[in-house]
Amino acid sequence: MTKTKIFTYVLLIPILFLAYKIYDGIRGPIMEQRRIASIEARVIDKLKMLRNLQLGFYSVHGKYAGSWDELTNFIKNDRFLNIQRTETIDSVDSRGIEYTKVKFDTLGTVPVKDSLFPASRYPDFDPNSISVIPGSGGKKFEIYGGRVKRNNLEVDVFEFRDPAPVNPQRRRNNNENALKVGSREEASTAGNWE
């Protein structure tokens, strides 16, 4: 063997090692970004579910739930009214103004679980796990339901917030950019990702 071949073989190992390190250095952050995006997408889906649940709770009880027990009990035991609205034009007067009669009929009730979480869309839905943050290892969303005073009126508000974001950018400044839906200060049902 010549010195050139020996030198080539000796350098081949560090070259392959450095190539792997460069590849892994590029691939690692990309895989981490994908993992964070996947978890955040699941958290956002759960926050949308919680918003719909809270709006349903409000439609039945006239206030937002302030605890997980209230929401879990609502899913398990409450029902929505199935109401039919019909309008009929009663008469038209000489000026051409129509008078409309509106009639509301209660046709029955539908369980909250079947209405908001149908088995076709959520086959493995468990009301007891509604508070658990996806990908967190069992941590729960923070829940708030209450009233705030705005323009001399008391307004019902709610907020669900992820207290331990996976994304390092959302953890800055005491989790100020953590994923959340609703607001403790404003009458809003929007999420901060929208």
Score class of each variant (00 low, 15 high):
K46F: 07
A65L: 04
T88P: 13
N52D: 11
L71Q: 02
D69G: 13
Q33C: 02
I36P: 03
I89S: 09
L55T: 02
Y64E: 01
E70A: 03
N77R: 13
T72P: 08
K76H: 09
V92Y: 08
I83W: 10
I75F: 04
Y99G: 11
K76G: 05
T100L: 15
L55Y: 00
R34A: 08
R95G: 07
K48N: 04
Q84L: 07
E40I: 02
F104I: 13
G62Q: 03
Y99H: 14
I26N: 13
I89M: 12
N52V: 11
F74A: 01
E70W: 07
N77L: 13
R79M: 05
Q33S: 08
V60H: 11
K63G: 03
G66N: 06
S38Y: 06
R85H: 14
S91M: 05
G96N: 06
A41Y: 11
T100P: 04
M49Y: 10
F57W: 00
L55R: 01
V92G: 10
W68C: 03
V92N: 03
S59R: 05
A65N: 00
L47D: 01
R35V: 09
R51A: 04
R85Y: 04
Q54P: 15
I26G: 05
G28F: 02
S91E: 09
A37G: 07
G56L: 10
V60Q: 10
L55D: 04
V43H: 04
K103L: 09
S59Q: 08
I89L: 11
L47G: 02
G28K: 05
D78T: 11
D45W: 02
R27Q: 09
Q84M: 11
L50H: 00
N82I: 13
M49L: 14
E40M: 07
I44Q: 07
D93S: 01
M31P: 05
L50C: 07
K103V: 13
F80S: 00
G28R: 02
R85K: 08
A37Q: 12
D69F: 08
D93Y: 12
G25N: 14
N82T: 12
M49T: 08
K101I: 14
F57I: 01
V43L: 01
S59P: 00
D78V: 00
M49C: 11
G96F: 07
E32W: 15
Y58N: 09
I26P: 07
I97W: 09
A37V: 11
F104E: 15
R42V: 06
K63M: 05
M49V: 09
E32K: 13
K101C: 08
N52C: 14
D45P: 03
Q33H: 01
Q84H: 08
E40H: 14
L55P: 01
N82E: 12
R35G: 11
A41E: 15
D78L: 03
E32R: 10
T86Q: 15
D90Q: 04
L47I: 02
F74E: 00
V60C: 14
N52R: 11
H61K: 12
K48A: 10
N73K: 10
L50P: 00
G28A: 04
N77C: 06
N73P: 05
S67T: 14
L81M: 04
V102D: 06
G25K: 02
L81G: 06
K76N: 13
T72M: 10
G96C: 01
L55A: 03
V102I: 13
E87I: 10
R95M: 14
